[in-house]
Design a protein around this nucleic acid. Structure first.
Lengths: 329, 329
DNA sequence: ACAGGATGCTAAAGCGTTTGAACAAATGGG
DNA sequence: CCCATTTGTTCAAACGCTTTAGCATCCTGT
């Protein structure tokens, strides 16, 4: 900067004013141009570190995740957070801590030392989570998880609405006998989606029948294993807890010569692209809005747009219609 | 820091020396303890920004990717890079530029302004890439792509070795008539894997038969569409260009009552977990080492461990054995 | 011709660290 | 008992930038 100042024969103060385009800075047009030229010819770049130092805070937002690796979802959260942060002039500082206490402590320290504007703490599946104590030193927003004590702002998928949407996908094609294959473990996903299912049925004036509710491991094997029992109840539509379960269901159905969607309509959940889009027929499902979770997390942190003072902000799970739901016979 | 200094009644210089544990600093044990206590009770954290300012450079490594969103792979690259960076005391600054020129320029500016130690420029599939001019201002390592001019260090998957490995997976079970379903578009993957296939055959003393080489769109539809033609050549094993092709192949085979691996052995490529692990039977495949690409990228950038002065460092593609390859009849 | 207000620019302090030189006190050797 | 070390600690400059107060000029109207 000093070099630029010298080249343009002005003071560094002037250069600063020009670089930052200060609205109320009175700089002559000619001088301004001279500085601009000097900047160009010298290839000057401001030093963000120094800038942040003097301004007190930085333009960093920390993102700590518990598993970038194990799931394709985390990528989406990062992506959403990064886009939104970018939009507001912030940069993402990421750290992932594969359930490693020390790594977590270190990561958080690092972020605090870099004077982050705040931290997004995200998990790869929707669950309760404790906020590590040191994070209290800064702004925190939980993403895809929530504090049981509800004392920290959180952004989570709207499981119940998702369950409702999934069920409505079947209802609106005339299905009245709709099974749900839920997961075995209690969780926001388990409870919320079931609740949505029941709400949708009720709204359609259909009585809830516990016999149509099945539990299965939330993966392909689970879906495959439960086929017989599901068919025994002769539903015309099935809402699967996730796409992998639907994948297993497909396998079982195929073996029995049962055609999707002609003989049985199937709806998944998660919208795991590689699975849902490539099954035959392509799977109609409900998406977990990971990108939006990341983006909304940043918005909440920055206090722009929708903002729950505390408590959870629920992000809609949109329907993704493909070809696995047809009209009820 | 000043507060700590006052609390411990020493100078800030002393505090600095204690905090950084300077090896050749002569500080009395008692003073040292006093400072430590003050730090603890005041909850002092050093300001990384200031530290970096004075030290000249920062502990940032930039990672720019062309698509975090669209693929589960990018997550792995990030993860590998982040772990390795961490290990050396660096933090990742990420930016992704969904083929948006402006975003790219901005992202790079941002990184340079933050005085990054260097930048990893990564693509989501292995290809040639031009290094954006401004990146020349800093250290760059290409990850999963390479500069045609070979003037920039690059880390890429060893496609040929991967093709060889895939083929050997079949050879060692006694298969002699092995088909390859390659992709239609020329690319490092196309050429390298085919080369590996030929090398493996040659090493096994099997003559290369062009009739066993098929081209197909590199997705499920492609694999499904080519089944008939492949079967017409009655191979006992098939090496698919990727797992999605294998997925399509599975579909076609199932329709024809052909059992994997009993009637036909199948090997995929990419090791796309959600697909490969969940197909029935689970797919034996060769993994693209995305995690390692990220990690190796950082090592090359930092000049630790294996380091090609220039040119490409090839990372091994390991076999992932599941159940889709059985002995040849 | 001159007060008063714009206009254009700069000086200098400060942001939180690091670091080499400098200083003071204690110790050891002869 | 004095000089030379060693030991413990501080001074002050520097890092690259922002920002406020202030100093010159130059207009404008009277």
């Amino acid at each position: 900067m000093r070099e630029v100042a010298e080249a343009a024969s002005v003071s560094v103060a002037t250069v600063s004013l020009v670089v930052n385009n200060k609205p109320d800075a009175r700089i002559g047009a000619e001088t301004r141009q001279r500085v601009r030229d000097a900047i160009r010819t010298l290839g000057y770049r401001p030093n963000a570190l120094a800038k942040n130092l003097v301004s007190g805070g930085s333009r960093f937002i920390g993102l700590v995740t518990d598993a970038i690796a194990t799931t394709p979802f985390a990528g989406q959260i990062i992506h959403g957070a990064q886009d939104e942060a970018w939009k507001h002039g912030y940069v993402l500082l990421i750290a992932n801590i594969e359930n490693n206490e020390d790594a977590e402590r270190e990561a958080i320290s690092m972020m605090l030392e870099h004077q982050v504007r705040g931290v997004l703490y995200s998990t790869w599946y929707h669950r309760a989570a404790d906020v590590p104590a040191p994070l209290r030193e800064t702004d925190v927003v939980l993403v895809n998880c929530y504090s049981p004590a509800a004392d920290v702002r959180a952004v989570v998928p709207a499981e119940a609405q998702g369950g409702r949407t999934a069920t409505e996908l079947l209802l609106r094609e005339g299905h009245r006998r709709i099974a749900i294959i839920n997961t075995t473990t209690p969780s926001p996903a388990h409870d919320g989606r079931l609740r949505g299912y029941r709400e949708a049925l009720e709204a359609a004036g259909i009585e809830y029948d516990p016999a149509l509710v099945f539990d299965a491991q939330p993966d392909q094997e689970g879906g495959y294993a439960v086929v017989e029992k599901v068919l025994a109840q002769s539903p015309t539509g099935v809402f699967c807890h996730n796409d992998r379960v639907a994948m297993g269901l497909y396998d079982g159905l195929r073996e029995r010569g049962i055609s999707v969607p002609r003989d049985l309509a199937v709806v998944g959940f998660d919208n795991q692209e590689v699975i849902a889009a490539h099954l035959r027929p392509p799977l109609t499902t409900v998406a977990l809005p990971h990108y939006e979770l990341g983006a909304a997390g940043v918005r909440v942190l920055l206090g722009v747009g929708e903002a729950p003072g505390a408590g959870r902000l629920e992000i809609e799970c949109p329907a993704v219609v493909r070809s696995s739901v047809g009209p009820a016979l």
